[in-house]
Design a protein around this nucleic acid. Sequence first.
DNA 1: GTCTATAGCCTGATAGAC
DNA 2: GTCTATCAGGCTATAGAC
Lengths: 206, 206
Amino acid sequence: MPPADRRARRRQETIDEILDIAVAIMSEEGVNGLSLSEVARRLGIQPPSIYKYFPSLMAIYDELFLRGQTMHLEVMRDAMATADPGLDALVAGLEASGRWLLANRAVAELLFWRPVPKFEPSHSAMAISREMIDIQRAALVDAVTAGQLGPGADSDEAVFLVSTLIIGVLSQAFANEPDLEWGTGRFTPLFPKLMRLLVAVYPPPS
Amino acid sequence: MPPADRRARRRQETIDEILDIAVAIMSEEGVNGLSLSEVARRLGIQPPSIYKYFPSLMAIYDELFLRGQTMHLEVMRDAMATADPGLDALVAGLEASGRWLLANRAVAELLFWRPVPKFEPSHSAMAISREMIDIQRAALVDAVTAGQLGPGADSDEAVFLVSTLIIGVLSQAFANEPDLEWGTGRFTPLFPKLMRLLVAVYPPPS
DNA sequence: GTCTATAGCCTGATAGAC
DNA sequence: GTCTATCAGGCTATAGAC
């Protein structure tokens, strides 16, 4: 392996380390509590050295946003792939999503609650967002085809509705039961109930 | 009026002014962006003078939380009082709540999203929370009595479910359509639809 | 790539004169 | 109740030596 590759690899490792530390800090101090100095302190280097890896604090938020979105999408896609296509896949995907977001609270807040007013997600973030909508939409189409849901479920509205339900559950869990796991407490057990509602909103032709 | 009263009144006016400015700052900079210096700057006094009215920054958050909760409860109660008891009152109350929270975004975030990690709501806040649950619970009881909902709707679970629905809608609206009013956009119009679902979750005896 | 040093801000909070 | 002065610390970011 040429030395240039070694350097690049070391560099990438440091970048990953910075991002992991950043997540840890946000988990402890809140998303807004992230600071370059604290990252440097934990990494054992001086604050200015961070600038060799990221041009600004916002660039770190940017990377965290992108990485979070990508992982979230992957988790959801994997869960959907192992279930029966249609409604089962959708529910499995959303539950995996909820579980992951609850376990990665800081990232979840960054992705869905915009707690850093000065930070605006970049353009490339939109593409992943769109893909997220698409895989949910595809599952809804499968459910309609299979006769599990009515034709109205093949719509962006249905996707918005589904995401609104899960974000409601997560908001409540974060605010009121921050330390509980998915499936326990007063709120996350509501989710399966809410999912069954989908059938009531878009009743299949009988 | 004795001079002591005049002094007290002037003092209260200043306190109110400080709180109003604080809300304005949080609306612009985010809930976490509130700073004593900025309050002082806008009020036209020096930062240390704030300490004559509030012992600390957290004390300001505390007062904002309490004031916000009280106003929110009042808005909801008023809306419920003008509608038919039962399901109508509940829907009217929740819609008024959503409208108010959307129009008072900073306060809403403070109340329901805990964006300031170091700030924990005081004890007196719990009493108002409980009252909020009680008036919703009462409306649900009315709805069950009137045969609009099934007996399962007379439960804390039903209250949690209802609040989860509205918080989901608001989360989505805040994050994706921060400048739209209630009833416009992709998310807030979902709310009436969701409310009608309550009947599907707790079907009345037929 | 890492460091020291530092600029140039900001913050919350206190002491004490008037 | 207001002020000045100040403490003690935080922060992002830059310059330049090694």
